[in-house]
């Protein structure tokens, strides 16, 4: 037996005390909708049968959406009265799944679905709102830390062909209009756990035009292919990103320089780094410098360490002696000159 296979524990797998999970066992674990309450804590229960040979049910909990959550309102200003809040959504939920579900149970048409684990689109700014922001002096709202710009740049290509949802993900289904929403609420009530005829299978009824990538093996193989995009495309992506970054840096620099000279509406000038001379040193700084110099002096300086230094030193000494000799000669001549008359 090879060592690596010993580690895999597959060959030595001791399955005593275990039983293969077959359809019957799984079905025996399943909870029939009839045993689940129709509502819980104000949310209606909507059973959906999962696509498996065994009758396995998943339970969605639904209620009319009360849009108090500000970012949602900002992103979707007009969803009041036509949105439905869903929790415990299956991990593979897409907008197509929910559309197909509500069509199957007789609900209205869904315009869009907002998932809690997906970023909200940026809010469209109205002309009057722009004025409002100025009045409120929200001067630094644009790019306080530079992240605002990055959103404008090119997005990285996705590494996965399909987004899957963690168990704590919720969704808000936005219907085309209020009437559709009303229809959906009615459909939920009539197809809740007390309706034995509800046999909608999750994922059925999605149109062929709405392509949803498969799960399983192909998902992970596709992921590995996506990790290595086409080199040319990748080069272009990097070039574009860096070009934009350069432009942004230049623009920032220009803005900074401009602001350094222009007072704003209140008369303040933004203080930025400039090429002006530094203010005079404080007493402590001077003391520190002096200390450093003293240390350096103590450490010692050897002017005659190298041969060239010695040569230069000798030259200087010779020069000095020569100049002294010249001086002495001159002064002697001067004295002699004084004595002569």
């Amino acid at each position: 037996m090879e060592f690596a296979s010993a580690l895999s524990s597959r060959d030595l797998l001791d399955l005593s005390g275990f039983k293969r999970l077959d359809s019957t066992t799984l079905a025996s674990l399943s909870i029939a909708p009839s045993s689940v309450a129709k509502t819980h804590k104000g949310l209606a229960t909507l059973p959906v049968r999962l696509s498996s040979p065994e009758p396995i049910f998943h339970y969605l909990f639904v209620k009319p959406h009360d849009p108090q959550y500000t970012p949602i309102i900002n992103a979707h200003p007009n969803i009041n009265g036509r949105s439905l809040f869903l929790s415990s959504i299956p991990f593979d939920t897409t907008v197509h799944h929910l559309r197909a579900l509500f069509i199957a149970i007789g609900g209205g048409r869904i315009e869009t679905v907002i998932f809690s684990d997906e970023p909200l689109p940026s809010r469209p700014i109205m002309p009057d709102e722009d004025q409002l922001i100025k009045n409120r002096k929200r001067k630094r709202s644009h790019h306080p830390d530079g992240t605002a710009q990055t959103a404008e740049t090119l997005q990285w290509p996705p590494l996965w062909n399909r987004k899957l949802h963690a168990p704590d993900t919720t969704a808000v289904a936005v219907f085309v209009d209020h009437a559709a929403f009303e229809l959906a609420v009615k459909a939920i009530n009539s197809n809740s756990t007390d309706n034995p005829k509800n046999d909608y299978v999750w994922g059925s009824g999605i149109g062929k035009g709405n392509f949803i990538p498969e799960l399983g093996k192909s998902r992970y193989e596709d992921h590995h292919v996506r990790m290595f995009p086409d080199p040319e495309w990748l080069q272009k992506f990097a070039d574009d990103s860096l070009e934009k970054y350069d432009k942004r840096l230049k623009a920032e620099e220009e803005t900074r320089r401009r602001k350094a000279n222009e007072p704003d509406e209140d008369g303040f000038v933004t203080v930025v780094r400039s090429s002006r001379p530094r203010p005079p040193l404080s007493a402590e700084e001077i003391a520190e410098r002096l200390k450093k110099e003293e240390k350096r002096a103590k450490k010692g300086y050897h002017p005659d360490f190298y041969r060239f230094q010695q040569r230069e030193l000798k030259k200087e000494q010779a020069k000095k002696l020569l100049s002294q000799f010249e001086d002495a000669k001159r002064s002697l001549q001067e004295r002699k000159g004084r004595k002569k008359p």
Binding site: L29, I31, K41, I56, F61, Y69
Partner: peptide, 26 residues
């Protein structure tokens, strides 16, 4: 034992419930 979540997006934590057959199917 199937407890639906009590809060919507405003909540940081969502109360989850166990549905073992559905999880195994997943």
């Amino acid at each position: 034992e199937i407890q639906p979540p009590e809060k919507d997006h405003e909540s940081d934590k969502i109360e989850l419930y166990y549905n073992k057959p559905a999880i195994l199917n997943m």
